[in-house]
């Protein structure tokens, strides 16, 4: 049942993405509205799938790579809705959908078996730690797509053009939206580690990489606010930040063994 729901939401997302591409090419607003409706429908099924899996597994569904990717894509779409509500930022529609679809594709390749939680993961901290982290990741990943878009537009527009300034501001807003979630995720993870193992910081590879990710965005924020970095340099830093994030999320599990190596 959950597999079916996820496939339905994947189909809705992919149709929405095609419609959106088509509407931006043809300029028909009716098609864009249809894309928006499909996205909402897909999100509804996606949310339903997560809740249903939560119920079926009898535990928060945030423990395997499959579950993490499902949540990641959900968070990306959720962040899109937030930015749509705040700024009607339609420019994010396609980039956010591409990312969400990639994450879901990854999930389809993963093992969807509902495994019971090992004792260390049985804690109320799991929900707040994982969900806040993925909302942060969702936001920063969309910012990453905007960073790429910025570099593409930079070739066509002169520095300081309205379009570039808009993308840069949106990128900055995505990062300042996501960064507090990243901070909550990291500090709650630390608090949880203290409850489970008695070490709030143990330089586990996952911990270290999450700190590095956080520090890269600290550098970005200081550069932008204090040094006025708003050009391609900021876009590059934003791209690097997300690549580090991705390494923290996926790379560490495969390359550096530690307490977070779930599969």
């Amino acid at each position: 049942m959950t597999d079916l729901l996820l496939k339905v939401s994947f189909s809705a997302y992919i149709s929405a993405a095609f419609l959106a591409v088509f509407s931006s090419a043809s300029g028909k607003s009716a098609i864009q509205r249809a894309a928006g409706i499909l996205l909402r429908a897909g999100f509804l099924f996606h949310s339903g799938m997560i809740l249903l899996r939560w119920h079926a597994a009898g535990r928060p569904p945030f423990a395997s790579m499959y579950e993490a990717l499902v949540l990641f894509s959900w968070a990306i779409v959720a962040v899109y809705f937030v930015f749509d509500a705040l700024y009607r930022a339609k420019i994010l529609f396609i980039p956010a959908l591409i990312l969400a679809l990639c994450m879901l594709l990854g999930a389809f390749f993963g093992d969807s078996a509902m495994k019971p939680l090992v004792p260390a993961l049985q804690s109320p901290w799991i929900s707040i730690h994982v969900v806040t982290y993925f909302i942060g990741y969702g936001s920063l990943s969309v910012a990453f797509m905007l960073g790429l878009l910025y570099l593409v537009y930079r070739k066509q527009h002169s520095a300081g053009s309205d379009q570039l300034r808009y993308i840069d501001t949106l990128m900055y807003r995505l990062i300042i939206f996501g960064f507090p979630f990243l901070t909550i995720g990291m500090t709650t993870g630390s608090a949880w580690a203290d409850v489970a193992w008695g070490t709030y910081w143990g330089w586990d590879p996952k911990e270290t990489c999450s700190l590095i990710t956080w520090l890269v965005y600290v550098v970005y924020l200081h550069m932008r606010v204090l040094r006025g970095w708003k050009d391609s340099k900021a876009a590059w830093l934003c791209i690097i930040g997300f690549l580090v994030t991705l390494f923290t999320f996926i790379g560490v599990n495969f390359i550096l063994p530690g307490l977070h190596s779930y599969n």
Partner: peptide
Amino acid sequence: KLKASFVNPQ
């Protein structure tokens, strides 16, 4: 800071 409005050229 999220509340400050900004121009969407499109």
